[in-house]
Design a protein around this nucleic acid. Structure first.
Lengths: 253, 253
DNA sequence: ACCTGAACACCGTTCAAGT
DNA sequence: ACCTGAACACCGTTCAAGT
């Protein structure tokens, strides 16, 4: 970096806005603006969030918002950090138990505001709330023998999993135009469609799976089992890694 | 479904456009249009892809494109299926070896056209090329004792991992505005910034990790090790699942 | 039937002018 | 200093008119 001054956006994100300048008092603040934008996104999706719609909702001209944020992208970033609740307390809980809940909560959070999926860049966390989640995951892994880098990688893999699972659930639900357009509303519908589309010669394994009824799932699209499945895959992997570390074998790649 | 006629978009995707109608011969075709759009996206990012820019590139008025596609979203979907190459042949290879390569190739593919990250909805695959990748993963898992549903879940988890890792690499590289804005160009920069931002009382574990040098990684952002790390976590989990199945214990959730 | 050009209803962002 | 209104350079999409 070699640059002590934080960029304005980060200052805003961390609530370090400098002392109030003189002149007329501001009519708005970032919390109000961000909350209005989130409300719009929850109600109408990200398409419902324009500078104009947000400004109207807070009772101001669109251009006035540029007194508070640098660009619409800034606003999107504020929104995606703001939706995060506080993580649960890991103290005294077994790491696996805690991280399973930690991951599920992150997934549920994203599902409650599924528009974040269109924003999130999967970047390393920069906002105060996301960093709090990272902090608690690292704390939960204390005493496992993993080093800090490994702990961070574990947390990152789990966060990634939470996001992708949320994206899958969302896409299967009502997210994807092509699906609703094709009248696909359940895994069974999807299976039927694949039966029609897949040439068994070019797609032998997938054809067999589809024709064998791999997509039954009568009621809907996604079982909660599917979330558990991938999560357990990852946590089993972590458990093995911890066991390896504990047994003293530090085999590296 | 209960509806035999495929929606126009799926017909286009699967090359099942009905016999040519009469009237003037079309000047264009979907392959040409899609290729032009991909070229624009590769060169200028997704922002460079507008109906106008694509139309200009293929020598036609913007509105003429609506003879070929229903909407811009259709075009984006065609683009994201078109970039997929053919998957490697799994026959005779150990499943773990194959799936490791399969996952890495998917990640590299996404990195070569990183704009797909802004499109992809992580929906179950519908395009001919993505379904081919799924087919090969299922084939690679033949003889492991996993059932079709489990195989599909494994493939889905690995694809999700490929996408999230690509997103992380991309974000760390040049993707995220806030990072470049803050002058963050390496993991070390990121670590320095966090030292300044994190209050050790509120973020005890993260502060300790950061101050302990968890983000050294002198040269750049991401080691290839980080990709291997998460991948091995998942594959270790799969291996354990297979072992459990082989030993006859069918413990369910 | 394909393609064009004008038109519609939007965008995000700038900038000078008001208070 | 905050806020407004006009203006700019775009969007995606529609529709009637040309061939």
């Amino acid at each position: 970096m070699a640059q002590d001054r934080l960029p304005p956006m980060l200052q805003r994100l961390w609530g370090r806005e400098p002392a109030p300048r003189r002149g007329p008092r501001p009519r708005l603040d970032l919390v109000t603006i961000t909350a209005a934008a989130i409300e719009l996104a929850d109600a109408e999706g990200l398409a419902g969030v324009s500078m104009n719609s947000v400004a109207t909702k807070v009772g101001v001209a669109a251009t006035a918002l540029y007194r508070y944020i640098g660009s619409k992208d800034d606003l999107l970033m504020l929104m995606s950090d703001a939706i995060a609740a506080d993580p649960p307390d890991p103290s005294g809980r077994p790491w696996r138990d805690y991280l399973a809940e930690w991951t599920r909560l992150q997934r549920d959070l994203v599902l409650k505001h599924s528009w974040v999926l269109q924003i999130t860049k999967f970047a390393p966390p920069l906002g105060p709330r996301r960093l709090l989640w990272l902090d608690r995951a690292l704390a939960a892994l204390d005493g496992t023998g993993l080093d800090d880098g490994e702990k961070i990688n574990v947390a990152s893999a789990l966060t990634g999993y939470a996001l992708t699972d949320a994206a899958i659930v969302e896409a299967a639900g009502t997210g994807v135009q092509e699906f609703t357009e094709a009248g696909i509303e359940s895994a069974a519908d999807y299976g039927e469609l694949l039966v029609e589309l897949l040439d068994p010669e070019r797609y032998p394994a997938a054809s067999a799976a589809v024709r064998g009824g791999a997509f039954r799932g009568a009621e809907g699209w996604i079982h909660d089992d599917d979330f558990r499945f991938g999560l357990d895959l990852l946590l089993d992997g972590v458990e093995q890694l911890i066991a390896r570390r504990a047994s003293g074998s530090h085999g590296g790649g």
